[in-house]
Computed example of a mutant assay.
Amino acid sequence: TKHVLADYFGTELVMHQDIADKIKAWFESRNVPFHEVNRLQAMLPRDCTVLPNPLGTASGMWFERPSGQVVVSMPGVPYEMEGLMMSEVLPRLRSHFKLPTTLYETIVTAGIGESSLAALVSDWESALPSKGVSLAYLPSPGQVKVRIGVQGPAEDRKSLAHLLEAEAQAFVDLAYDHVIGRGDSGLPEAVLNMLKKRGETLCTAESCTGGQIAAMLTAVPGASASMWGGVVAYDNRVKQDLLGVSAENLAKHGSVSECVVKAMARGARMRLGTDWALATSGVAGPSGGTAAKPVGLVWMAVAGPEGEMAWCHRFGSQRERIVQRASRRILTHLHEAMREGPRRVG
Rank of each mutant, 00 (worst) to 15 (best):
G296D: 10
T1V: 14
S95R: 03
Q169V: 15
V72Y: 15
C208L: 06
V144M: 09
I112Q: 02
K252P: 00
R328S: 13
M270F: 05
L217E: 00
S115N: 09
D7S: 15
A170W: 13
G222H: 04
A310F: 03
S207E: 07
G211R: 01
M86V: 12
R319V: 08
K22R: 15
A233D: 02
K24I: 08
C259D: 13
P129C: 05
T209N: 04
K24T: 10
M86F: 07
R157Q: 15
E258S: 10
E248K: 10
N193L: 14
L99N: 02
A277D: 01
G56S: 11
I19K: 04
S116L: 14
N38Y: 08
P141Y: 10
I213M: 00
E320S: 15
V150F: 09
R329L: 05
S317Y: 12
D7M: 14
R314W: 09
L117H: 06
V302P: 01
L331W: 02
L195H: 09
Q151T: 15
L272D: 03
L13F: 11
A291D: 13
W26Q: 11
E105I: 02
P188N: 05
L138F: 12
A168Q: 11
S130G: 07
V295L: 03
H335Q: 11
P141Q: 12
H335D: 09
A265M: 04
G273M: 06
A168M: 11
A223Q: 02
V37L: 01
W228N: 00
Q143H: 12
M81P: 01
S122Y: 08
R182Q: 15
A161T: 09
A233H: 03
P78V: 09
E88M: 08
R157C: 11
A337N: 00
N193H: 14
Q17M: 09
L250R: 03
D173V: 09
G60R: 07
W62L: 13
A168F: 10
R344E: 12
A292C: 04
V71T: 15
I107W: 02
L278Q: 01
A292T: 11
D177Y: 03
M15P: 00
A247E: 15
R147Q: 14
R325K: 03
S159V: 09
P75I: 13
R339G: 02
G341I: 06
C312D: 08
R30V: 08
S246M: 08
E200A: 11
A215M: 02
R198W: 07
L192N: 08
F97E: 00
I180N: 05
L242D: 00
C259P: 06
G222K: 05
A263I: 10
V89M: 07
E167N: 15
L99R: 01
H96I: 02
G341Y: 04
A118G: 11
K24G: 13
G289V: 06
M43H: 06
A303W: 10
L243I: 07
A301G: 06
M270E: 15
R198P: 06
H253K: 10
A233W: 02
I330P: 03
R266I: 12
V238R: 01
L135S: 02
K239D: 01
T57G: 07
G56W: 13
P153H: 02
G288C: 01
A219N: 14
H333L: 14
D123C: 07
S281E: 00
K293D: 04
K252T: 01
R147T: 13
N38E: 13
K252V: 04
T1P: 13
D7V: 12
